[in-house]
């Protein structure tokens, strides 16, 4: 009995370490935190940002596994949704950048300076696709 508990705890702990370091590795590779610090000129708060990521991951994981439910008013979902969207949008942008898609495309198509137009096509595509998905696609 005792050995079983220890073993389960050990497996769970090991799994947690792997997933946690994977998450950190992903965020690091995509360089979202440095980018945010550069934009807001807050390099000195890097430690707090680390803590924020760790707390967020632990809290999210815990609430998800334990099925915790609060009874907050519905309205606060809007800012949560916006923040989640901005984060996923930055992830998508970082991924596009890692793959070097935009510079090559701009050069091939001959847009050169007008790369912002290409960017806007992708941005509006993402917004439209996402809205279409939630409002229409889901119900059909």
């Amino acid at each position: 009995m005792g050995i079983k508990v220890l073993l389960i705890a050990f497996i769970g702990f090991g799994g947690g370490i792997t997933v946690g370091s994977g998450l950190v590795a992903l965020i690091t590779v995509l360089g979202i935190v440095p980018r945010l610090m550069q934009l807001s000129k807050t390099y000195r708060f890097i430690r707090s940002y680390e803590i924020s990521i760790i707390l967020g991951a632990v809290l999210g994981g815990w609430m998800n596994l334990r099925n915790v439910a609060f009874s907050f008013p519905e309205v606060i979902l809007a800012p949560i949704g916006l923040l989640a969207g901005v984060f996923v949008g930055m992830l998508a942008a970082a991924l596009t950048e890692v793959l070097n898609v935009l510079p090559i495309l701009a050069k091939r198509v001959g847009f050169g300076k007008k790369i912002i137009i290409i960017l806007m096509a992708i941005v509006f595509g993402k917004i439209t696709g996402s809205l279409f998905h939630w409002i229409y696609y889901i119900n059909h």
Binding site: M63, N64, V68, A69, F70, S71, F72, P73, E74, V75, I76, L77, A78, P79, I80, G81, L82, L83, A84, G85, V86, F87, V88, G89, M90, L91, A92, A93, L119, I122, V123, F124, K126, I127, S130, L131, W134, I135, I138, N139
Partner: peptide, 26 residues
């Protein structure tokens, strides 16, 4: 988790999320 109720289509979360996507990229 936030409200304590279940909702099939949580649009209040999803519409800001969609606009956030674009904002994040920009």
């Amino acid at each position: 988790m936030i409200t304590g109720h279940y909702k099939e289509q949580p649009l209040l979360l999803q519409v800001p999320y969609s606009f956030g996507l674009g904002l994040g990229m920009i």
